[in-house]
Design a protein around this nucleic acid. Structure first.
Lengths: 246, 246
DNA sequence: GTTGGTCTTTGATGTAGGTCAATTTGACGC
DNA sequence: GCGTCAAATTGACCTACATCAAAGACCAAC
């Protein structure tokens, strides 16, 4: 994987690596989960692995949705823009997460890598054909999309009704839960995104995110041992703050 | 259908009427859409019709998700609560819409009728069994949930980054689009929900919604001929305002 | 038609978080 | 180590919307 950072080049320009499923170590949490060995071979046949550096645009809002992706390594940010440039993050993706949901055959959001990232790419038309003959796969997809919808509704509650402090605490907590479920370290969180990415995810400005984090540091609830890493030192208080219990 | 208004009684106390699919005139936009006649019979066998008055709680957040519902007449509001009572609407449902998505077998939101309403009710376990043998149905469900997810992401953009005026205009526009697709009258919108419901949907207070509406009236963009009805008199400006183009 | 209750509108005032403007810190290349 | 550039932090000030309070409109029951 390239270590050099790339600025806003397009996924179209990227050569795909042809060593899919064998190399992929996250099958148990991705789309491929719950498929028989035979089914997996069929899915493998229509997928290809793509490796990209940091800051690469994966898809653009409104572009024709020809591909779907599964993140297999690294992380990705999803966002929507208003005509004047205001931005709303709709999600951060980590290994196992899915990307490329569309409406009217066009992507509903843009996606960009936050660090060196590996993706598993599927042609939409081929995947749809495969769905017709692999009911397990369609069921898996339905479960993944339903879960995303539930999380989206939690995010609506956050954006519409929580204070800055509650927003930041909820965000750290959700990152912690995700991390916990995969590596069992609830305390140490990786923060591959910048402050302004976080702000655009929470409906806040960079400055407010920064101020809120320093307040949490001063209160002894978190610490930031290095850039891109955050440690939760008082999980109970963080949890309470996230729900407005303070 | 009862015309008397009921206050917050439970769906559990309601007798179901046993005249499902024949009576239902919205099959072309509901879950049942795209099913063969035979498939429809199987679906009909596990569904029952429920009629309720205004202000009836249909489901409660965190309750075990034993049923799924399809709205066949009337309208419904969906919402989530914070411990201190702050509320976020996650959606308004109209005939054809679906309700009951869950995570960990519990409902992710509460639902309450906005007026006299008819619902088509499915047992979750029975529906899941049926999904295994009716791939069309699962595909239909996947499309419905995917569409909901796209709309949820639009709502995140609204909640996180739009001004009060843009929020209200976007809301009226989305109601108008929904109405248009079903009766072709883009101009006249039915507003079965109260101002504070709208506020909780848009992340605003009742007062701000009211003030914003009066401003739009004074600007000649909308008019309110009767309570519960709203007319769009300048669609172009409303559309521009919704995206911040003013 | 009158009454009681709820919902909506309007006005006056307050504040959380945004905006603008420096610093400070950190990452990377040489 | 040093210089450069971008990102993060901090401070001073401002504003969009919330909050508080009161008056008006609607609707159902009698």
């Amino acid at each position: 994987m390239r270590s050099r950072s790339q600025v806003a080049s397009s996924i179209a320009s990227l050569a795909s690596v042809n060593s899919p499923c064998e190399k992929c170590n996250i099958a148990e949490m991705s789309l491929c989960h719950a498929l028989s060995c035979d089914d997996l071979k069929q899915l493998s046949a229509i997928s290809s692995s793509v490796e990209i550096g940091k800051g690469v645009t994966i898809i653009n809002e409104q572009d024709p949705a020809n591909y779907l992706f599964n993140v297999t390594a690294g992380s990705v940010k999803l966002y929507k823009l208003l005509p004047d440039g205001r931005r709303q993050m709709t999600g951060f993706l980590f290994p196992g997460d899915f990307l490329g949901i569309a409406m009217n055959d066009c992507y509903a959001y843009s996606a960009e890598s936050l660090e060196d990232t590996r993706l598993c790419r599927f042609s939409r038309t081929k995947l749809e054909e495969l769905l017709k003959i692999l009911p397990h796969l369609e069921n898996r997809l339905l479960n993944m999309v339903s879960n995303e919808l539930v999380l989206a509704q939690d995010q609506m509650l956050l954006l519409g009704r929580k204070t800055a402090k509650e927003k930041v605490c909820s965000f750290l907590l959700s990152l912690s839960k995700r991390t916990q479920s995969k590596t069992d370290h609830a305390q140490n969180i990786s923060l591959p995104m910048g402050r302004s990415d976080i702000g655009d995810y929470l409906g806040l400005t960079t400055e407010t995110v920064s101020r809120t984090l320093t307040n949490l540091k001063k209160a002894g609830i978190i610490s930031i041992p290095a850039t891109g890493v955050l440690e939760i030192t008082n999980m109970q208080e963080l949890t309470d703050f996230a729900e407005g219990l303070d």
